[in-house]
Computed example of a mutant assay.
Amino acid sequence: MARTKEFDPDAALQAALELFWRRGYEATSMADLVEHLGIGRASIYATFGNKHELYLKALDRYNESHDLTLLRELSQPGPALPVVRAVVRRFAAEASREGRRDKGCFVTNTAVELGAFDAAAAGRVEVSWSHVETLLHSALARAHAQGELSADRDPRALARMLLALMQGLRVVGKTSGDPGRVQDAAEQALRLLD
């Protein structure tokens, strides 16, 4: 007879996500996970696989929740350009907000820490960034069609620029003690939408 799990796998995955997000992959040991999740090593392996598999599952969860938020924001009916501006400003505000700066963005953190040598992690980062780019492109194409965006502006190129900017804001915001650096960069980039 199989034993029932004595912990909530969903809560454990969320706890792992928080730990990996705050500390990173390399700085989080299995012992840290056992302590933080409050479950045994064997239960972690049986439920999630090894540390790497658990990390990827945590990254998938993060992407799902954050992608839905962005989808809701950028898919609103009506004028699209104000929504795009609000999203970029939200990214800048989050990047420089106390309490959030130490964590940054889990996807950006993964790209910086693992992207160059971990194909599975890099693949998930690319999927996330492609999704963000597509959402931005869609909103900017709508803005273009509605006459909010100048006819000489390329919605795809602007979406790519904003994606790179937003990810850069996360890196700079995490490491800089000057919130003005992030805010000024965002505002200068948004002038390209005029």
Rank of each mutant, 00 (worst) to 15 (best):
L54Q: 05
E73K: 11
H66Y: 09
T110F: 06
G49S: 09
G123L: 02
L192E: 11
A186G: 07
G168D: 03
P179Y: 00
F106D: 04
Q146H: 11
L114F: 05
I44M: 00
L193Y: 05
R90H: 12
D118C: 04
S128D: 14
A185E: 02
V87P: 06
D67V: 15
A151N: 04
A151L: 10
L149C: 02
L37C: 08
Y55E: 02
K51S: 04
A145F: 05
R191A: 15
R85G: 07
V132K: 14
N63M: 10
E113P: 10
W129E: 13
L190C: 09
R101C: 06
G123P: 05
W129Y: 14
L81N: 07
N50E: 08
S176H: 05
M166A: 15
R181M: 13
G168Y: 01
S43K: 09
V182T: 07
W21D: 09
D118E: 11
A80E: 03
L54C: 07
F117N: 14
V171Y: 02
V88L: 01
T108E: 06
L17H: 07
G40P: 08
V83G: 07
Q167A: 12
T28D: 07
A141G: 09
E6W: 11
T108V: 15
V132I: 15
S96K: 10
W129L: 15
R72T: 12
R3T: 15
L68V: 14
E94L: 15
A58C: 04
S65Q: 13
T4V: 15
R153V: 10
R3F: 13
M30N: 11
V112I: 15
R3Q: 10
R142T: 13
H66F: 04
L17D: 03
L71P: 00
A119Q: 13
L68M: 14
G99F: 04
T108I: 11
A116I: 08
A46S: 11
F106L: 06
F117I: 14
H52R: 13
L19F: 03
G180T: 08
I39W: 05
A141Q: 15
G99E: 08
H52F: 06
E53D: 11
R85K: 10
